[in-house]
Amino acid sequence: MSDMSLATPRAYRRPSTRRIQVLALLTALVAGLILLTLSCGRGCLAPGDVFAALTGAPGADASFVVSELRLPRAVLGLVAGLSFGLGGVAFQVMLRNPLASPDIIGISASAGAAAVFAIVILSVDGWLVSLIAVVAGLGVALLIWTLSARRGAAGARLILIGIGISAMLDSITSYVLLEAPAWDRAEALRWLTGSLNGAQLTQAIPVAGALLIFGGLLAFTARDLEALRLGDDTAQALGVRADGTRLRVTLAAVGLVAIATAATGPIAFVAFLSGPIAARLLPGAKGLLLGAALVGAFLVIAGDFVGQFLLPARLPVGVVTGAVGAPFLLYLIIRANKNGGTL
């Protein structure tokens, strides 16, 4: 029994210091990580040299490495990680199931397959690739919704259908890559597990734009999304239109994940891992969206750094996050069997 009984009204929702601390800590971690990836490769630069290189001060010899190689990589990792984290947690919260993340139910796979198809077969690039990826992502989301449409789409049915579709799309990706005339292994790996190799700042622009637009849409819908966690009936009793909210969240989350996937490939399990990690850091789940976005950025940048420099062979980021994510997936499935597992 609790010994906290008070006779007068009090603040039931104090500005949560824990929430602010966790979000500040995550932001600091991501910022620190970016600084680390800018300064360090096989060897490390002094912070002053990094700053000089970034500002383009004359005579900075590290200029090429920092500005042309490391900065685009860090920026793309940041925006892609934020997008994967945000899109992933939006799906997981909306469907009330951590397994219902876009990289498990085939949304990432559809964006990846569409991007590969667009680049290899249609020979397009830039914005058009992003657009095709988003359209494919929305199409597959619609397909999964339709196939699993029975009262309450949150069920195991949706996830199993999504896994099936995901496998089909992955085989399309593999097929297109095999048919591609002159692709090297690194480029193929990007579309199979996700990679930041050869990152350019121009690639980060559509991803950043998507973050602004779809992230904004999610922020605007966050309160209604939060109400949806109480179930459709309760949400509707609280004045939330469940279907309209789901439509907005799906659009935003697919947009985020698909555009990031078109730039970096489907970086394995980042969308899936970010939400549950953030939920454990932020009990009661206020600030979950922002938390998951930051965790996503952390996972991508850290995974990329580990894959490049801390392992015996240079590996793309998706291999590292995949190695971390797979055991966690097993853990969640075992746990979900025990208690049905909401996020």
Partner: peptide, 13 residues
């Protein structure tokens, strides 16, 4: 207002 038959609560709330 409505209280449904089996309302759902987020974990850890």
């Amino acid at each position: 207002g409505l209280l449904p038959q089996s309302p759902i609560a987020p974990e850890g709330i």
